[in-house]
Write a protein that binds this DNA or RNA. Structure first.
Lengths: 141, 141
DNA sequence: CTACATCCTCTAGCAACTAGAGGAGCAAGA
DNA sequence: TCTTGCTCCTCTAGTTGCTAGAGGATGTAG
């Protein structure tokens, strides 16, 4: 009903910036929408749904290639969804690893900052720890 | 004593790849080392320490510009170290924010995956949630 | 009639590297 | 002697996911 909106409206509705929408079209995430006689892109509800899907997935940190795979699955609803599950699981693993490595960094940074007496650089614990990795508790980085 | 090593050895000692060391020189993080008569870079202990400092800071997620500032402080040990402290604190805040947003993503991904019955894409919860943001508990992303 | 908004295309830039082309010098082995 | 292999050099272009800007067309409002 409301279909056929220009790119600016599509951007407002989906929260994706205008150049980014064009970029998604260029890399083939979004099928090229039809053009008006004045050569303007004209997006329908289906395009908007697709754009929202992309935005949501990007918000969850999925890479463009994963999103491409997820969209392909969405386009073929009779397929098994094991692939979608795998992509989501892989992303979950990534997120878990990232969280644990950031947690370690947090501890290191806190130790650094706590040790700093706010005097001269010569005695600054932040600089000292950076200069000498062996002063780190956590050896993973 | 052991000074004056070529770039390959410097790379091995510091754990930074050869092209990356050249890159750091190019962007001015590392002063251009002297060359041998055969035009080879020759790194001394001071360069190696600086490279290790950079590697450690990169490992902690500091951006190049922050590292530039930290190195400048290290080069002037009589200055106050408040600036170093501020850079570290800013990084800590970033890390904390990143952790909490990743924690939210983790919950969302887990909910998604738990809801998936591994049947057809048509009923796949992963795809459904991506397609409809309102099904998300967490509205931050 | 002019200002403003919206759209179009195309190119170039960001961070922080990484990969590859194309070339040189030197030592050890066949 | 020749070849293989290692290290080094410079330079350019690619990566990811956009973002910014140039330069131009068209429509509407005042």
């Amino acid at each position: 009903m409301t279909s056929a909106v220009p790119i600016g409206v599509a951007a407002r509705e989906t929260g994706i910036k205008v150049p980014t929408i064009r970029y998604y079209e260029k890399i083939g995430l979004l099928p090229p929408p039809p053009r008006t006689p004045r050569n303007r892109r004209s997006f329908d509800d289906c395009d908007l749904r697709r754009l929202k899907f992309i935005r949501h997935a990007r918000g969850l940190g999925f890479e463009i290639d994963s999103i491409r795979a997820l969209l392909l699955l969405q386009d073929n609803p009779d397929q098994s969804c094991i692939a979608a599950d795998q992509i989501a699981c892989a992303r979950l693993t990534e997120v878990e690893q990232r969280i644990s490595s950031l947690a370690a960094l947090k501890i290191e940074l806190e130790r650094m900052i706590a040790g700093c007496k706010r005097g001269h650089v010569r005695q600054c614990r932040v600089i000292q720890v950076l200069a000498d990795h062996s002063q780190c508790q956590n050896l993973r980085h």
